[in-house]
Amino acid sequence: MRAILYLSSFFIMLSFFSCKNDVASALLKGEQVEYNFTNAELSERFVDEGLVSQFSLISNNGGSEAKIEALYIGSQDRIKTDTIILYLHGNSPSMNDYWQLTVDLANVGGKHNYGVMMFDYRGFGNSEGQSESIEDLVADAEACITWLEARGLTKDRLAVYGYSLGAMPAAHLAAEQSVLEIEKVVLDAPQTTSTKLLQDATGLSLSGSTVTSFDYNIPLVIQDYDNYLLWIHGTEDKTASFENFKYVYDRYDNPKKSSAELEGVGHSTAIEMGFPAYEALMLKFIRQ
């Protein structure tokens, strides 16, 4: 009988102490870092370091405030005239991992041709708090748009670029009421829904809410978006299924949609396709 008691106690304690677990908290992998946005960290294509600024913003998700860290590449004085790309990064620890990619975007069409803004979601990099919902990520992006709008950005010069994890808030931001209406959005290597993520991992018809309250649904929300959308995806992506988003894209009724379906390319789309092809793709999209 003692064995039964021991075993039962172990399981009751295990269940009691860990009943608030959420798979999202394990998958959203931010960590504190020392930011290093210098040319020394770049291997190709550089910036005028005097035009790089790193600063903090306050993000507010329905009263849940967090101080988040942001980066702007370009002259802040030209926000009122430049085209600006707001870059929503993927699920790496911090902005450091996307420094070269954002510098590349700033250099599309010529050195510092576009202003580029990037930020760390709450709980990523040195941003405070913890990302627990898609609304948290969207609120952090909204804080950046608010900052840009206060410096003169208008909706016709804004493009929102969501890579991997960033495609989730980018799609939600585009479809929902934003501070500035989103007229151009790029979804680069996107997932589809939280439920599909679990179903691809298990093969079973389980709802995403079985393991997480982090609920997102790109196929659903983009039905409410009818402006320019560019979908970029590698056919060999092992992190976000190409076939899944292809299914969504093919059924997405929007005459302003376009795609770059990259044969043989994996999850690191921009890097794998090479800068000349990437630059041409981005120029064509932004200039339309």
Binding site: T192, T195, K196, Q199, G203, L204, S205, N244, Y247
Partner: peptide, 18 residues
């Protein structure tokens, strides 16, 4: 395992047999 609700798998990719 038999997924008798395989139609609930999103993007029409459900399978009965697991």
């Amino acid at each position: 395992w038999y997924d008798i609700a395989k139609g609930a798998v999103e993007l029409e990719k459900g399978k009965l047999m697991h």
